[in-house]
Design a protein around this nucleic acid. Sequence first.
DNA 1: ATCAGTGCAAATTGTTTGCAATACC
DNA 2: GGTATTGCAAACAATTTGCACTGAT
Lengths: 125, 125
Amino acid sequence: LKATDGRLKLLALLEKAKTPLSIKEIWQGLGRHVDLATIYRNLEILKSAGLVRQVEFQHDKAYFELIDNHDHHHIVCQNCGRIEDFVGCSFDDVVDQALRKSKWFRSISEHQFELFGLCNNCAKI
Amino acid sequence: LKATDGRLKLLALLEKAKTPLSIKEIWQGLGRHVDLATIYRNLEILKSAGLVRQVEFQHDKAYFELIDNHDHHHIVCQNCGRIEDFVGCSFDDVVDQALRKSKWFRSISEHQFELFGLCNNCAKI
DNA sequence: ATCAGTGCAAATTGTTTGCAATACC
DNA sequence: GGTATTGCAAACAATTTGCACTGAT
């Protein structure tokens, strides 16, 4: 795993963003000269290196964010796409309970918890 | 909104399945003569009718399931894709807390909470 | 006759891959 | 020189759209 210029810029961009970015946003943020294939490949690499996480929203596109160690998740506006973080998903309790009842699983390695609604702006309309 | 034969069969299929199905699974389950475009269109309609929910996993494909009123979620095997339900995501507490801290959101209309890991089969390998 | 629902083919979009050109040790 | 990284173009896959056709009311 090599710290190439492109990868560092990608990480810097995600760091600055604070919220998950779509591929297109990343591409624009990098100035549009970086090839999309490169962006996809680097995100894949950064994912398996444990630096970046892919976030699943209700869209058809992929979103990515830096991994920090707070277990944070997102509230997403179903109209404008605004993203806000939230913490406190009481993950451990839920997992304990889920595993106790589970027939097929003995451990959990990842989870996703996302909330959706209308942000104050969009709710007015 | 009309209860056409195709839509009823689609609902019956989802009902029988118990777990979320991908488009391809639905297509196969219907016997492969129904056009994919029709399936996509009908799922969209059933979604806005509030009968079907689209579930977001870590894949690139769309998964769909019937909406029942239990607030249930899924544990997904990252290797073989096996899906098991779980309940008890303590949704209300989390939402209350999240909204209390939120700057942009006043209410939540949907949420997704999915767990990922290796099922007992795949963990052995 | 009208209008929603369908199939078929084509278009669009998001993503992946092969390969040659390049940059880095 | 050898290996990893990138750009470019082509391939792929999932999804959407246009349009003509069918089928029910």
